[in-house]
């Protein structure tokens, strides 16, 4: 079944009593991709992940993992996925090694193979030192790693992680991201999050979900490009204010501008160019010509956060795309 995409979802709908969590969702994810599922709380991320991991059925539509239907060939699908649910539930009364072995055995690994794999994932997730500790006594960061190790232990084709870095400190988040990044290529990874830098750093593709529908699906860079076509130029220059204002006013490429004092002789200018124009070389040439001191010159890119807010704002969301 190698010619199938890793995940193929078509017209997936999930209705709970009274509301629709996921509506007519369709997307495909290829092998080896790291895809970020982005959306505000209640957008349908966890629901979609639960359907993909065979925990609950969809109301209508189909979902396939590696070519197997999640409902009718559920056991085949479950063999191929490593799933870490939201909040990372663990058996707190077990020791790390004991738990991972238990999970490996549940996932059908032989005694010898599970021992070997548990050793490998403990190493991979930095758990070797706490291997004999009781999970309930571990810090949140370590517990999260135990959850990750569990998802990896049977070498699944597809790894589904629901908010893997929630509640971690910055160092731990960095470590988890590194780990996720290292999984790409050999495994397909689907992570859900509402932490945007996470997606920017780890994912090759973003699916933005809002109110149960897909709003955008592209690489983080492309999404940014689409948004920042009207990129504003920010610059800090030491010059008399009236000269600055006069200069921007006479410059044809500048649509509008804003000048504000910063400190000392410096003024911060925000220049909005005409569509498609990069103002930066021009600004630099002017400053050199007139002998102004220039200490900052940058084009403001829209962060993924802007895109996210833009796409998932309740009103006028279809404006851009």
């Amino acid at each position: 079944m190698d010619d199938w995409p890793m995940i193929e979802v078509s017209h997936l709908t999930k209705r709970y009593a009274g509301h629709t969590a996921v509506q007519d969702l369709s997307f495909a994810i290829g092998r080896g991709e790291i895809v970020g599922f982005l959306g505000p709380n209640g957008a349908g991320k966890s629901t979609t992940m639960r359907i993909l991991s065979c925990f609950m059925p969809a109301t209508s539509g189909t979902a396939r993992v590696a070519g197997f239907d999640v409902f009718r060939e559920s056991e085949e699908v479950r063999r191929r996925i490593g799933y870490m649910p939201e909040n990372n539930p663990l058996h707190l009364d077990m020791r790390v090694r004991e738990y991972l072995k238990f999970r490996a055995r549940l996932k059908g690994l032989s005694i010898g193979r599970s021992r070997e794999r548990v050793g490998v994932v403990q190493e991979q997730c930095g758990l070797t030192d706490v291997s004999r500790k009781i999970i309930g006594h571990l810090s949140k960061g370590f517990r999260q790693r135990v959850g990750l190790a569990d998802a990896l232990v049977h070498e699944p084709d597809l790894i589904i992680l629901d908010e893997p870095t929630i509640g971690l400190d910055p160092n731990q988040i960095r470590a988890v991201r590194q780990l996720i990044k290292s999984l790409g290529g050999r495994h397909t990874v689907l992570i859900s999050t509402h932490i945007l830098p996470e997606v920017e750093m780890t994912c090759s593709r973003v699916l933005i979900l809002h109110e149960g529908r897909i709003r955008a699906s592209d690489s983080p860079e492309n999404l940014q490009k689409r948004m920042s076509s009207e990129g504003q130029v920010l610059t800090e220059i030491a010059a008399p204010e009236n000269e600055l204002r006069a200069c921007w006013e006479t410059l044809a490429e500048v649509e509008h501008f804003n000048v504000a004092p910063v400190d000392g002789d410096y003024f911060r200018c925000a220049l909005t160019p005409q569509a498609g124009v990069d103002l930066r070389p021009r600004v630099f040439a002017i400053a050199r010509e007139r002998g102004w001191l220039l200490r900052e010159l940058t084009i403001s890119r829209h962060s993924l956060e802007d895109i996210f807010v833009h796409l998932t704002r309740p009103e006028k969301e279809e404006e851009l795309f």
């Binding site: 925990f55 479950r78 649910p85 539930p89 663990l90 707190l92 996932k107």
Partner: peptide, 14 residues
């Protein structure tokens, strides 16, 4: 209650 039901039922166990 602990949520481990979800991790249990998503393993290939009948």
């Amino acid at each position: 209650f602990a949520g481990t039901y979800e991790t249990l039922m998503t393993t290939p166990v009948g």
